[in-house]
Amino acid sequence: MGTYIVRRILQMIPVILGATFLIFAMVFALPGDPVAGKCGERPCSAAYRAAFIEKYNLDDPLPIQYGKYVVNLAKGDLGTTASDTPVADQLKLRVPVTGKLALMAVAFEALVGILAGVLTGIRKGGFLDNLVLVSTLVLISIPIFVIGNVAQLYLGVKFGLFPVTVTSSNPTFYELLLPALVLGSLSVAYVARLMRTNLVENLRSDYVRTAISKGLTKRRAYGLHALRNSLIPVVTFIGFDFGALLGGAVVTEGIFNIPGVGGYIFRAIRVRDGASVVGSVTFLVIVYLVVNLLVDLLYGLLDPRISHD
């Protein structure tokens, strides 16, 4: 187990380096004036320009620029934004918000998705099964920005069930509830369908038949054997989705005015604040890789045949 984790962490290093280099090259190798628009409605002074180029090592060739960046990164320094605040401080403000939102969305998709998948998988072909299949299809095909805006208009503005937008930098559970439902709505459909397909396949398998013929109750045979084995692909998906939701919440965050990581990176890309972009994406990549490692370790709990020794 220990050696497995160490090996996996070592394997992460080239991936982190590769991903940051990719983003770094795209953001910093941009053609055009690096200080354009940094000084408001007038051209930047020569002193500012020199200081800026000095600070981000823009005179060096790209590999050296990147090398200097990585050395700082290894020391835990994510760099400073164009407005001279450390990227790490910006992330510290925003990661808890997005983290909370993503966790709520993932909890929603896991609970509702797995429940819907189990209920439909056990009674394949029934009314509930068809209802869930059709409604998940519809849910998948409507783009998230339409779902978000419509939900905000009806549930927030017209019926007043939920707060319309988030108004504080430290939003409450209730304020984030509607955004989390919107954010998780697409994944809930995927989880339900994935769960159903796997359960249907496992219910027909030999070990379930054996368990039933040994005299186990259906509840125990399904719940203990079939369900547990069907969960592996679902857990993989949910783990992958958590990483994706952290960075992919740009649209939802925009609609509900949530001060999160997605919107921060999006704005940074638009104003070409390179250090913010590279720092935050690096952070997201690391989170994604760590979550994937945790998911792989979870397999061992679900299926004892998978061991990491």
Binding site: P14, V15, G18, I23, V251
Partner: peptide, 24 residues
């Protein structure tokens, strides 16, 4: 596979935004 991981680890939407802003 590791090369694929590099691209896979970048969030799709944000990565696409970076590519689109980078291209003229």
């Amino acid at each position: 596979s590791r090369l694929g991981d590099v691209f896979f680890a970048i969030p799709l939407l944000l990565g696409a935004v970076i590519v689109l802003v980078t291209l003229p």
